[in-house]
Design a binder for these strands. Sequence first.
DNA 1: TGCACATGCAAAAAAAAGTTAGCACATGCC
DNA 2: GGCATGTGCTAACTTTTTTTTGCATGTGCA
Lengths: 110, 110
Amino acid sequence: MTEEPEPTGDELVRVLATLSNPHRLRVIAALSRESTYVSELARSLGISRALLQVHLRKLEAAGLVSARLEVSEDGKAMKFYEVNRFAIRLTPEAIEAAERTLTPDTKGNT
Amino acid sequence: MTEEPEPTGDELVRVLATLSNPHRLRVIAALSRESTYVSELARSLGISRALLQVHLRKLEAAGLVSARLEVSEDGKAMKFYEVNRFAIRLTPEAIEAAERTLTPDTKGNT
DNA sequence: TGCACATGCAAAAAAAAGTTAGCACATGCC
DNA sequence: GGCATGTGCTAACTTTTTTTTGCATGTGCA
């Protein structure tokens, strides 16, 4: 019964674009193992905080991860991220269906 | 029993990158309805042949479509494309697994 | 021969995405 | 106060992707 709502074509494009990046796959993998905060995640992935934030923003915009603010014992404000549940099935048929809800190509909407 | 071989992290990134484009989704949708040749496909999609060819090349490189050469009754050589079967399941767990086979980020390998 | 339609390729231009570097602000603690 | 750690932002680059433009080749047929 617990079905995933079929994403529209545009949403699908966005999610796929978001997932088609090594850094972002690593972020999802890391967070699915254990949710953490930005600085810590940046250290464990070996990338800069600035870069990680850009990727986290995209992941969040695509609805793949969520953030919550927490205050550590020593008073530091930390932003914790966790992976959202999702299940997308990619097949020619699914794509054929999603394509029907794609925004027309009015030559000026990438 | 007919299982899809799990793609490696790198392959997954490539396939997702290929699918995350409206034109290419339209190509797959169109071809899954009926396979055709380049010029005809370009007309039905309303894009230039040159542009379509670039997208077809990417789709083929990612293993999502296949081409075969055919000669029409009136002797014209036409390149027919068809969609390949594929089924990819995208979930946090699947990504977590794929990430393990990603090529390390040696700073110089997109 | 000249037109219509099929194919191909690649340089150049335009647009989008990724990355770096630098600065700002807050808290706890020696 | 000064240092370490947490957060955020953005302007400026660099790199990649997308799209356009133009030219080349081949066939059949009026």
